[in-house]
Nucleic acid binder design. Structure first.
Lengths: 99, 99
DNA sequence: GGCATATATTGACTTCCGTCGATATACTGT
DNA sequence: ACAGTATATCGACGGAAGTCAATATATGCC
C-alpha cells in the first residue's frame, strides 16, 4: 500500500517523540513569538543535527514555517496547520474547532 | 529519546496507511455493527497476515477491541479511544468534543 | 578578509517497521 | 474424528527512519 494519503503524511510527521515535543512547544507559544531552532536542542535530548533533521521533516510536511533573523532561524506552526489537523482529527472522532 | 509518551504511541498506531484505513472504517461504522476482520483484507490491498499484524498493533495500542462470534472476530473502536484521541488532538489545536 | 556562532547537509551505522509465505491455532459443521 | 474456514503467529527479508560525528553553508561582527 503506497503512501499518497496527505493525512497519513501529516500523522507520520507528528508521530515521533522529538517532533511531537517540537510541535507542542510551538502550539503552546502559538500566540507568543516564534521559537528559535536553538531552543529545541535542549528541550529534547538529541544532538543539533538530529533537531535540524526533524525540523526539516516538519517543514517538508507543511507543519512549520521558517523565518530568518540574522544568524538565528525561528520556527512557527504553519498557518493552515490548524485546519489540516482539525480536519484529520475530526474525521476520527466528533470534534469541532474551538472559535 | 525514548518512547514512553502514550500520546506518541497513539499517534504512531494510527500513522500508517493500512491502520488509518481500518480506523476510518471503524469510525464510519461506529454506530453500526462491529466490523469483521475479513472485511479489512479487501479494503487494503495487503495479505491476511499483514492485516492481522496491523489489527494486533491497534489492539495493543488500545485503539480497538475484539469480540469473537463463532469463527469470525469482530473489531470496533475502543470505548475510551474517542476521549484519548480528542485529548491528543485538542492539545495541538483548539478543538472541543462534539456533543 | 577573518573569526565566531547558528543551522544545514553528508555519510555511515543501527534499529525499527511493513510485508509476505508458511504454519499453527480456533471454531463449526458433518 | 475429520475437513473446512477464519484468524493468529513465526521467521525472514527489504526498505525506511532516527541518530550522531564530521563537515559545509550562512550570517554577523571586528
Amino acid at each position: 500500500m503506497k503512501n499518497a494519503d496527505p493525512d497519513v503524511e501529516l500523522l507520520q510527521a507528528i508521530a515521533d517523540p522529538v517532533r511531537l515535543a517540537i510541535v507542542r512547544q510551538l502550539a503552546a507559544d502559538a500566540n507568543a513569538e516564534a521559537v528559535c531552532a536553538c531552543d529545541f536542542t535542549e528541550c529534547c535530548s538529541v544532538s543539533q543535527p538530529t533537531v535540524s533533521h526533524h525540523l526539516r521533516v516538519l517543514r517538508e510536511a507543511g507543519v512549520v514555517t521558517t523565518q530568518r533573523r540574522g544568524t538565528y532561524i525561528y520556527y512557527r506552526l504553519a498557518p493552515d496547520f490548524s485546519h489540516r489537523w482539525a480536519s484529520v482529527a475530526a474525521s476520527l472522532a466528533g470534534l469541532i474547532p474551538l472559535s
